[in-house]
Computed example of a mutant assay.
Amino acid sequence: MTNTSRRLYACLSVVGIALLLGGCGGNAPYSPIIADASSDLVLTLENPTVTVEQGASAVFKMNLRAVGSFSAPATVVVHTLPLQWSLTPGNVVTPTTSGTPLSLTVPTGGVAVGDYEFTVSATGGGLTRAVALTLRVTGVSIGIAPESRTLLPGGTAEYTVTVTPLNGHTLSASLEISGLPSNVESSFNPDTVTFSGSSPRTSQLVLSLPDDGGSHPVNRGSAGQTFTVTARSGAGSVYATAVVIIDDRGGIDAIIR
């Protein structure tokens, strides 16, 4: 490099530095443009598993948060949940940097006892985030034995009602009976069963028919009258039905259907 070239290079370098420090064509300070590489979408859960008794509504609490420069709306989708559900505030949300609460409500009326695994995803700004959730529905089952009994005037007939907790159910169950003929009395001992673990609990159902001197005006010779034993636990209930028949001999046959 010649001396002239060296002097020209030095001058250009000085001019370049001056432009950087002083701006181009004015006194405005230099403001470099820096890209914000911190942009993200975060979906979090308050509790990945929610347990409810059959008939109640499960509520899953979530939070959708924007990180950095993320500002796009996000579409929230529930996957592989074969039940009805609702999402608050809706399925399209613009998350904030402080977080936007989401609430997923799943009613379980008429839903079978069991575990339901599913996912929730949020997609926006070219990003997708997903979380895994489990809905656990608990409940009880009921059975009555024996299948049939005969009740004579002035006597009693006993049945064993068995109530079994399912899928970790812990709430007690109260027993009710309906649909008996008006002159048949009933009692449960006990009328409420309390569970411990998965062990079934039993109650003795006693039917009695007062001795009215041979007059039995209920369903004489008919196909029978249905009565129902119901176990109510929390928001759910299960039942078993039986048919009461009064024949010409004055007895009652109770047949579990």
Rank of each mutant, 00 (worst) to 15 (best):
M62S: 14
I177Q: 06
N47K: 13
T75K: 13
V244R: 08
T156I: 13
L175S: 03
V113M: 12
L102S: 01
T226G: 02
T192G: 00
G16Y: 11
V78C: 11
A235P: 04
S71E: 13
R65M: 11
S86E: 13
P73Y: 08
T230A: 02
G250H: 07
V78I: 14
V229I: 09
S215F: 14
R249D: 15
T128G: 06
T150S: 15
V193K: 00
S172M: 07
V137C: 05
T80F: 03
L175T: 00
T228V: 14
L45E: 14
G214Y: 08
V243F: 00
G26T: 11
F188L: 05
P200V: 00
S186R: 02
T194M: 00
T4S: 13
G22T: 07
Q54W: 07
G154M: 03
N91E: 12
V131C: 10
S199R: 13
V59Q: 15
G22I: 08
S148H: 12
V52T: 09
T88F: 14
D212L: 13
L104S: 04
T230W: 00
R249M: 10
D247H: 02
I142T: 06
V140I: 10
A74Y: 01
G90Y: 01
S208P: 02
P89A: 04
L41I: 03
V77K: 15
T194W: 02
V163K: 01
